[in-house]
Design a protein around this nucleic acid. Structure first.
Lengths: 126, 126
DNA sequence: CCTCCAGTACGAATTAAGTCGAACTAATAC
DNA sequence: GTATTAGTTCGACTTAATTCGTACTGGAGG
């Protein structure tokens, strides 16, 4: 824990100064109907759930999800999630990393993210 | 519970035998993405919220909500809510009364209805 | 410089959802 | 029987969302 220096900007755990978040709605601006609408899509549920379940490491770039869709489609869905206030995205060089705005969402819509984390897509219902 | 007769079918508190529910998905068939999609509409949120907050009396017919929309639009939205598994509807003579499937929804998606009950439309924030 | 790479921006095609009028049905009252 | 009433069904229209190809941007490495 005392090992601070300015030598190595680690790629996964960025040092104190992060790139600024891309434009996003403030916590008070979050609207339930918009958030629910953004989450009513299986692909986007997959994205958010995966971020929730595997967030031990830091933010994740768009390709990390292994989604079999063209890039322009992914841009569209990530933007929908960011516009709804569900994801925060930061630019790290070339890649744009995403994380779930858990604090804001838990504050405004408590319990909602638990539902997303518990969700299972149709293909793997047991 | 020994007071059964066939004399007085009360209009608001129907006796033991209710009309059967209109076709609806079973509890196990409820899908989060479908439920969220159905709730991502302000008018439908209004309907469900109103039912949740003023459910002291029994099921409510479509006109009770005082929604300023043509009847065919209301049919559309009530059907969307029923198909998603959010409302249960029963036919009482001419009118079709609705209630929220609170038990099923609380079982499958705990906390979700609390979010709906706490929702406020844009027009009356602040 | 040029190349590679992650992702965006634009635009067009498709698909889905919402809106609503008009005709209809079915229960109740007369 | 007729009239009224609550709600449906159909169909057409409008609007919004999704999908994705192509062209583009902007940083990193040679």
């Amino acid at each position: 824990m005392g090992m601070s220096t300015s030598t190595a900007p680690a790629p996964d755990v960025p040092p104190a100064e992060l790139p600024p978040p891309l434009p996003e709605p403030a916590r008070e601006e979050l609207r339930l109907e918009v958030v629910l609408g953004a989450l009513s899509d299986p692909l986007r549920l997959t994205i958010v759930r995966k971020l929730l379940l595997e967030r031990e490491s830091y933010d994740h770039p768009c390709g990390w999800f292994g989604l079999d869709r063209p890039k322009s489609s992914l841009t569209h869905h990530f933007k929908a999630l960011r516009d709804a206030g569900i994801l925060r995205q930061r630019q790290y060089g070339l890649e744009r990393r995403s994380r779930v705005r858990t604090e804001d969402l838990d504050a405004r819509f408590p319990g909602l993210l638990d539902l997303v984390a518990a969700w299972k897509p149709v293909s793997d219902r047991g």
